[in-house]
Design a protein around this nucleic acid. Structure first.
Lengths: 207, 207
DNA sequence: TGCAATAGATAACAACTGTTATGCTACGGT
DNA sequence: ACCGTAGCATAACAGTTGTTATCTATTGCA
């Protein structure tokens, strides 16, 4: 059982060639967060979800905060890789940007889980500057991808030259974040297709 | 000290003519939430913020959850009354809708506090169906106001007849929510005026 | 004046939290 | 064969939590 796929996380400086049990711990933490809420996500609950004891968690993470930051980082990682895949697979068109932005919406259960965890952490970041800083870094990272995409579209003359990529990236991300939250609250006034249409409409307005 | 201004909250069915100490408790809870985070907002912390003991809280609220639901309801109350004021004061124009939507953005410190509390509760609602249901009701209430405004604008021929008020209300609220969260994370890529401009631009596109 | 309800203080309760130390087991290198 | 370390279990720790019961003071009403 010695799988050795490299894990390119930011915190994998420590000497670990194994698939890093920490990913399993973080995954268990995700599940508990979504099911029980962040306030009931104790080390014992995570360990129980993993089918182990708290020794596993304490052995692989210095603090609970370290675990939480790692779990939050996984959110960013998933979103960025999801977008990166689309950047490689699809042609450079406005529709590609739309597809990338749809990554943030809870289309399938996995996306829904990501969004839930993200919102839970965002709420927890209120009054916790360290966590808020992590969110800030995450947001900057995701924004950078969208800005790059907008610039590329601009260079390909798919959107107007007058468009400010930095500004519109923010607006677009704000829009998808808001739509995602609405869907999460189950306001249910907009279904998945209507949300996609709203994004597409805004992107097309940049033409 | 027998102030008797009526309080039109949803939970004020109980026989209390006083200004209801519960509002002060909720205000104290807000302050603790913003400063310390929702996880450190214990009954003792709230009481200490209020300059009293926990007896005050336990006397006026059945549970901690009752207090939390009350505090969350205050968020909705503030936002709706803020919009209602604008509806009375200003002329019926598209700019009035913009002004109403700006209510959700952290323009001053009070708005910032409201937004922070709202986000904290939203994160806490993950894994807590009862709280999530409260959010759902709140969102529905706010959306109804925006829908009404859109319909009125449509009747006044300020926006296109083809526009679907229900859909656009959702998109607009999603946009302001997202922009507010961005500002909260202090992504700081968009200043207050740029955010307002983004909203105004979308509203004008409905013309 | 006297009774009853309200407002609040205080303290004790059990449950749960993150952290830490310690013990056990299995494997990898020498 | 030996030893050190990684991986994990276990248990104890002190602190904090919401809840509850009990007690005191004040106020409104008859």
């Amino acid at each position: 059982m010695l799988r050795c796929q490299g894990s390119e996380s930011e915190a994998s400086i420590c000497p670990m060639s194994q698939p890093d049990r920490r990913y399993e711990v973080a995954a268990a933490a995700w599940r508990v967060i979504v099911r029980e809420g962040l306030d009931r996500t104790s080390l014992r609950a995570i360990a129980h979800e993993l089918g182990c004891t708290t020794g596993v968690v304490t052995h692989h993470f210095r603090d609970k905060q370290a675990l939480m930051l790692f779990a939050l980082d996984q959110v960013t990682q998933r979103l960025t890789t999801g977008m990166a895949v689309l950047q490689r697979e699809k042609m450079l068109e406005r529709e590609r940007l739309v597809a990338m932005l749809l990554t943030f919406l809870p289309q399938d259960t996995e996306r829904q889980e990501i969004l839930r965890v993200w919102v839970a952490f965002l709420g927890h970041a209120i009054g916790h500057p360290a966590l808020m800083a992590a969110h800030q870094r995450s947001a900057a990272q995701l924004r950078a991808v969208v800005i790059d995409e907008l610039r590329a579209l601009q260079q390909a003359q798919q959107i107007r030259p007058a468009v400010n990529p930095a500004v519109e990236a923010n607006v677009l991300l704000a829009l998808v974040n808001g739509l995602g939250i609405d869907a999460l609250i189950q306001a249910q006034c907009l279904d998945s297709q209507q949300q996609a249409q709203a994004i597409r409409q805004y992107v097309e307005s940049l033409r």
